[in-house]
Design a protein around this nucleic acid. Structure first.
Length: 423
RNA sequence: GGAGAGGUGGCAGAGUGGUCGAAUGCGCCUGACUCGAAAUCAGGUGUGCCGGCAACGGUACCGUGGGUUCGAAUCCCACCCUCUCCGCCA
């Protein structure tokens, strides 16, 4: 959510932000709703003020006295008016809040102009893609024996499409990657957290998944919990409605969780094999930072995620997202894409985003500044990293002529052997 | 799942219909005393929203949401959470 004062004082900044993100929002309607709400609030509060003054007078009067009885009669009418106004006020407030929630975050000045993913800027490229071209290269789902270690058919039987079983070395490579990521992230200064993987409605709302993305999440009956689409959801809510110690900032945490995404409407080549799943494992990095260090911490977090790909010796590139491809709630975002040599395509394995105070305002996460006034923190997060696509690149890029997969040196201590075998 | 108790400011803890944003204690901040500190004494010390350049004014908040009433921290209803006992169970 944006600061309402920004809308009132500098609507042009908001207008420019909407344009840069290539969104359609009727800003004037939002402003009108805000004005209407404020006018109604004034009226209601002055009525209540009158009511309060009368109450104080009545407290001094003897209960049964004629003056008292007259006051009761008089205030009965005011009370009815207050109730009426309060009902109207509540409706106006809800409309206004909904309208405010429809306003996107302001993109940072360094975000490039652009409407489509093609206009994202390649920020940096690492590793040698050409070296991966070989005669036996193939998509991971076509590698002989793939279905033994990554059993999609039985997963479909037991649960549904996109819920594979990982078997034998398949399970072990997932565990090795998770352990490796968590160890590296911890070394980089992130405190490991093991959060709940279901959240309530308030938590989903605070990070912006509700309203709007309810169709993307699995919901439980009868408790109305949501299966988390990312560890960002429970992690960000850790400090919801709290004022944290300024000296503790930045607070850096990492968490492994399974992630659940309905991905309604996704079909075709993009979703084959490990490319897109309804349940997958991911380690998330998250920081609560002081606004003054926000972008430096954002860069650091991106570097922390990049280091993981470097240690796994996977070629990757970093995209700086243009305004049109920036999410609704982000001020700036880098995507890390790993090169998948068999499919000959880039796969997104991490989005490193700075939300500035957009999430913190909704979630009411603040710190006490030196002058004593609470101030909103900035939140930053990114994957470090998502397992299936890293795995898919690992399988494709490291496929040997004999059908085995060479395990990167950094991962060998975790995996326990130098090769993964399918058959 | 059953029975009972309870949820009040940073913490502890009073308050059962009106002058209560809320006693008191602790903590914290400022000042006095002191070479300095401790102790002591005096004063201060929640958050949001609206209006205002500001000083400040208004209003809301006693787990959450409804209700009763001229008036609710206080009474009624629902829900959430915590604790105790019983039951069940990884």
């Amino acid at each position: 959510m944006l600061d309402p004062r920004l809308l009132r004082e500098s609507p042009d900044i908001v207008r420019a932000a909407i344009a840069k993100k290539h969104l359609q929002v009727d800003l004037d309607a939002v402003i009108a709703l805000d004005n209407a709400w404020r006018a109604l609030l004034q009226e209601t509060e002055s009525l209540r003020s009158r009511q309060k003054a009368a109450n104080n007078d009545m407290a001094k009067l003897p209960k049964g006295s004629p003056e008292f009885i007259a006051k009761v009669a008089e205030m009965r009418a005011v009370s009815a008016q207050v109730k009426e106004k309060e009902t109207a006020l509540k409706a106006a407030e809800e409309k206004c809040r909904a309208a405010m929630l429809s306003l996107p975050n302001i993109p940072h000045a360094s975000v490039p102009e652009g409407a489509t993913p093609e206009q994202n800027v390649v920020f940096s490229t690492h590793g040698d893609i050409a070296a991966l071209v070989s005669a036996h290269a193939k998509p991971h789902y076509d590698i002989p024996g793939f279905n033994k270690l990554f059993d999609f058919d039985r997963g479909a039987k037991v649960t549904g499409a996109g819920f594979p079983f990982y078997v034998g070395d398949g399970a072990k490579i997932v565990r090795a990657l998770l352990q490796f990521f968590l160890d590296e992230d911890t070394k980089a200064g992130y405190t490991e957290v093991n959060p709940p993987i279901f959240v309530n409605e308030a938590s989903a709302t605070a990070v912006g998944q509700l309203p709007d993305k309810e169709g993307m999440m699995y919901e439980t009956i009868p408790d109305r919990f949501y299966a988390i689409p990312t560890a960002e959801t429970p992690l960000t809510n850790f400090f919801r409605d709290e004022i944290v110690d300024e000296a503790a900032l930045p607070i850096c945490r990492c968490a492994y969780t399974p992630c659940f995404r309905r991905e309604a409407g996704s079909h075709g080549k993009d979703v084959r094999g490990l490319n897109r799943l309804h349940q997958f494992d991911k380690v998330e990095l998250l920081k609560w930072v002081h606004p003054s260090t926000s972008y430096a911490e954002h860069d650091k977090l991106r570097n922390d995620a990049e280091r993981l790909l470097q240690k796994l010796e996977l070629p990757y590139r970093v995209l700086l997202m243009c305004g049109g491809d920036l999410g609704f709630s982000q001020s700036k975002k880098y995507d890390l894409e790993v090169w998948s040599g068999g499919q000959q395509r880039w796969l997104e394995v991490s989005s490193c985003s700075n939300f500035e105070s957009f999430q913190a305002r909704r979630a009411q996460i603040r710190f006490r500044a030196k002058d004593g006034k609470p101030e909103l923190v900035h939140t930053i997060n990114g994957s470090g990293l998502a397992i299936p696509r890293v795995l898919s690149a690992l399988l494709e890029n490291n496929l040997q002529a004999d059908g085995r997969i060479k395990i990167p040196a950094a991962l060998v201590p975790y995996f326990g052997k130098e090769y993964l075998t399918f058959l």
